[in-house]
Design a binder for these strands. Sequence first.
DNA 1: ACCGTTGTTCGACAGTCGTCGAACAAGCTC
DNA 2: GAGCTTGTTCGACGACTGTCGAACAACGGT
Lengths: 101, 101
Amino acid sequence: MELHEPELRDVPVTAVLAALADDVRLKIVRTLADGGEHVCGTIELGIAKATRSHHFKVLREAGLTRTRVAGTSRYVRLRREELDRLYPGLLDAVLTAPARS
Amino acid sequence: MELHEPELRDVPVTAVLAALADDVRLKIVRTLADGGEHVCGTIELGIAKATRSHHFKVLREAGLTRTRVAGTSRYVRLRREELDRLYPGLLDAVLTAPARS
DNA sequence: ACCGTTGTTCGACAGTCGTCGAACAAGCTC
DNA sequence: GAGCTTGTTCGACGACTGTCGAACAACGGT
């Protein structure tokens, strides 16, 4: 299993923004914002698992998440420190924004 | 001429992020970041004017810019104060980010 | 009144994106 | 090993997006 996790500085800002510009992915990011590791499947999203897998892939390849494989599960967490270092304020701004109505 | 400029709070965060997640529009925003008014046509973008018009429309309808009509020209400026109030840190994070290589 | 300038709108087109079911892979448990 | 669970991958499909040329609209200057 190749876990493609790019260096954040190699990811264009537009890719980071595009990754955040989706309701499903934003919900994932909000959930991960507690700082802990979450198993992909435990985040309730109301979509097919293929779609779920797709969104986690987008987040990972945009440098937003770090994934640890353990058994059949994947533990995902937000790369908050790195993000705050490279884009100070971005994550906070997005997270404190009013949730989707 | 109907100038559709929504209240920022009525625009979903994802729409704001999507508007910023494009190289051309990001370049426009960076140019407008000096706080002044710019005439649409004076910003060098290297694209057809139809496309240019499209991008300015996206920015306007995402609540990112304010447009003033004067003669045949449109004066555009960034809605920075409102943006900073609703999404503190977002604009700064995007603007200080390394420009697209 | 004509012409040039500035922008918008209207198809059209290619490309990307979100979504899904189905098939597959890998691990755990009995 | 059989079966279940957890995710990924593979088309496929419809919707949206960025791009353009052409046509149009509105204004300014001569």
